[in-house]
Design a protein around this nucleic acid. Structure first.
Lengths: 231, 231
DNA sequence: CGTGCTATTGACGAGACTCAACGAAAGTGG
DNA sequence: CCACTTTCGTTGAGTCTCGTCAATAGCACG
């Protein structure tokens, strides 16, 4: 765990993360109680059953939040994208594991310190609330995706969601991007099997809606038809 | 819309709702800017596409938050139980409809007023954050339920969730309760059809895990086995 | 150039949806 | 209070999607 001093001035998410709600000097104070941490692909931030003593803002990369069934099968509950906040401040102890999907950088704080900061800087609390609302919105979008839809619709919807997440501007999705997840992880999120995901991707490519390059690269060819399926 | 003055002293959720974080006199001030509202079963609080100008705490009854696909099929994203907070304070404008499942009572506030109150009373903001985190947790539980499970598991899990929600104490679920939702709504939440839900309920009763009385009454006979399926 | 791992593709079968009929409950109007 | 209508719930038979099992192909690594 490297204890680099935080350098907010060059932080790529300084305009979107929760701390962006703070004034200059307040942010400086927050920076003093936090530190950077790097996570390599596959490394876990918090393991299931941990009493999480930390919280963090994701600076770059991507994380997944997943739970595990009794049979050990993984279930991905949510993805975390840059500027996202991790640390279920008040949630019941959840058996959630948080793992890096790609090499990632985070801004980590002790939970106690952060809670104190929230009390001192009300704006931070409001910013967290906003983030939380966005997470909730995302979660509901995923629920929407999981509910009564065909596998083809699910896969299409996920591609669109990924395209949106890959783009910096939230309004227009990226036309070409790399999937941050493996097929298995995608399947886990959608409640499908690897095989079904693979088949539907093949079908989407056959029908000319997308183009695949390598195993992760996706180019959206016909966004309109894709949206009709997955939106 | 009846404009009864709020009477926090006798409010059944005064110890659990967001406003419970406030001190006596602060709560009094909040009460002055809010009013009670009754909703009959089936009435909608906010319709899709409304720019919601209000937010509310649910006092009694039950609400559903749902979205609608292009084909008009309803998709229930979340249930709201007493003490729950409604009003996506900061979320992107969502095409979500909020409808009463049973006759309900709410504590309604203008969004602007409430936001001002949040700024003035930081504790309120923190309480909202906690609520939001719980909602997020609930949402993720639903996602968990929707992901790769058999219809029997889904139905079992939903019964357990309902039992938990029906009980006042969050630790031990109610043994006997009324479903707040119709079969169709249940099906909508689980991504199943009415028929499948009905069949699985019949099966659970045949196998002695539950007992049905009327169309809504549920008695949990064998919580252990039910938990093994749906937990 | 093997060696794992991930992804793709095919054949088959179980589980969930569709369609359809029937029964039960709830609301309506006389 | 009762007959009527409407909605909701249950049950059955047939179809189709998606999961399971298995074999093969691409890729990254040493």
């Amino acid at each position: 765990m490297s204890a680099n001093p935080l350098s907010c001035a060059t932080c790529p998410v300084r305009s979107r993360a929760a701390c962006s709600a703070l004034r200059e000097e307040e942010r400086g104070e927050l920076a003093r109680i936090g530190h950077h941490q790097r996570l390599r692909r596959g490394q876990t931030l918090f393991a299931a059953h941990d009493e999480p003593a930390h919280c963090a803002t994701l600076i770059s990369g991507a994380l997944k939040i997943s739970s595990f069934g009794e049979d050990g099968t993984e279930r991905i509950l949510s993805l975390v994208h840059p500027a996202g906040f991790i640390g279920e401040m008040f949630a019941p102890v959840a058996d959630h594991q948080i793992v890096a999907l790609t090499d990632s950088k985070l801004c980590v704080f002790s939970k106690r310190d952060y809670e104190r900061a929230v009390e001192r800087f009300p704006a931070l609390g409001r910013a967290l609330l906003r983030r939380s609302a966005e997470d909730l919105f995302e979660s509901r979008a995923l629920i929407d995706l999981l509910g009564r839809r065909s596998s083809l619709q699910k896969v299409s919807g996920m591609l669109l969601a990924m395209a949106r997440a890959a783009s910096d501007s939230p309004c227009h999705p990226a036309a070409t991007f790399d999937l941050p997840v493996t097929r298995g992880e995608m399947a886990g999120m959608l409640g499908l099997t690897i095989e079904t995901v693979s088949r539907q991707l093949s079908k989407l490519e056959r029908d000319g809606l997308i183009h695949r390059s390598g195993t992760r690269g996706i180019e959206i060819v016909d966004a309109a038809r894709l949206g009709r399926l997955g939106g």
